[in-house]
Amino acid sequence: MDETPKTDPLGGGGSSLSSQPDVELQVQPRPKPCSLPIVLGSSSGYRRRIMDSLGWEFSTASPDVDEKAIRDPDPRKMCAEIARAKARALAERLDKPAVLITADQVCLFDEGHGRGEEVREKPESVEEAKAFLRSYSCRSVKTLSALCVTNLDNGRAAEGVHESTVAWREISPAVVDDVIARGNVMGSAGGFALEEPGLRSLVDKIEGSVDSVLGLPVELLCTLVERATCDVT
């Protein structure tokens, strides 16, 4: 597995923040790295927006995978395996040749007290979503974004996991209630979304990149697409 450290230079893709009161996605258009059609195997609006920002032509497909059935004590391996399973689920029903991009994301939160890091996926209830948000107040949470890029023409695959960390200012009970009432965070790993109006101004700092926190780390994506299609002109 190729792993891109969170301290890697971001170049023109993504953005790093330091004590800024707002969060904006900043992705510059890139030349398409290959001649093959590109399929984004995801229903995430955030990932589609990042792909649009790159300027690549692509289609979308939604994988049908029971993510909860894929478990591993190592959260990095687990989200990578889920991304891989999504690729397997889509590969048989997509036209070839094509480049398939699949992804998964989990969050890690350390509550302290020697308990270690808790793996957090999409909240399963409103109560769990509220608990997640309350716990982030004046604390930090990590995001692990796994990508699997598969060349459906020859079966070559490249994958990796990118880590970022979001540090939060105080999140008041009123903000938690307002955010949950809007419902936008229920489909997000860790139960938060940077572009949620009630949360974006409460981000204190991001180590890594905004695109990674949103689920599609651009630098890693470009590297993996090139690796999976290096013999394609």
Results as ranks from 00 to 15, higher is better:
residue 53 S to R: 10
residue 53 S to A: 13
residue 53 S to D: 15
residue 53 S to M: 14
residue 55 G to H: 13
residue 56 W to R: 04
residue 57 E to P: 04
residue 57 E to Y: 14
residue 58 F to K: 05
residue 58 F to E: 01
residue 59 S to I: 06
residue 59 S to F: 15
residue 59 S to K: 12
residue 61 A to K: 05
residue 62 S to M: 14
residue 64 D to K: 12
residue 64 D to H: 15
residue 65 V to L: 09
residue 67 E to S: 07
residue 68 K to T: 07
residue 68 K to W: 15
residue 68 K to I: 06
residue 69 A to E: 10
residue 69 A to P: 07
residue 70 I to L: 06
residue 70 I to G: 00
residue 70 I to H: 00
residue 72 D to K: 00
residue 72 D to M: 04
residue 73 P to E: 10
residue 74 D to T: 07
residue 74 D to G: 04
residue 74 D to L: 05
residue 75 P to D: 10
residue 76 R to F: 15
residue 78 M to S: 03
residue 78 M to P: 04
residue 78 M to D: 01
residue 80 A to I: 02
residue 81 E to H: 12
residue 81 E to C: 05
residue 82 I to P: 00
residue 83 A to Q: 02
residue 83 A to K: 02
residue 85 A to V: 04
residue 86 K to F: 10
residue 87 A to T: 02
residue 88 R to H: 13
residue 88 R to W: 14
residue 90 L to P: 01
residue 90 L to R: 01
residue 92 E to G: 13
residue 92 E to V: 09
residue 95 D to G: 13
residue 97 P to G: 11
residue 98 A to R: 00
residue 99 V to I: 14
residue 99 V to E: 07
residue 100 L to M: 09
residue 100 L to C: 06
residue 102 T to F: 09
residue 103 A to P: 03
residue 105 Q to P: 06
residue 105 Q to G: 07
residue 106 V to L: 13
residue 106 V to R: 01
residue 107 C to N: 03
residue 108 L to P: 02
residue 108 L to W: 08
residue 109 F to W: 10
residue 109 F to E: 01
residue 111 E to C: 08
residue 111 E to W: 07
residue 111 E to V: 02
residue 112 G to R: 04
residue 113 H to Y: 12
residue 117 E to A: 15
residue 117 E to L: 13
residue 118 E to D: 14
residue 118 E to W: 01
residue 119 V to T: 12
residue 119 V to N: 02
residue 119 V to M: 08
residue 120 R to L: 15
residue 121 E to W: 09
residue 121 E to A: 11
residue 121 E to L: 13
residue 122 K to V: 07
residue 122 K to A: 10
residue 125 S to H: 09
residue 126 V to K: 05
residue 127 E to P: 07
residue 130 K to Q: 14
residue 130 K to S: 13
residue 130 K to G: 13
residue 132 F to G: 01
residue 134 R to Y: 14
residue 135 S to L: 05
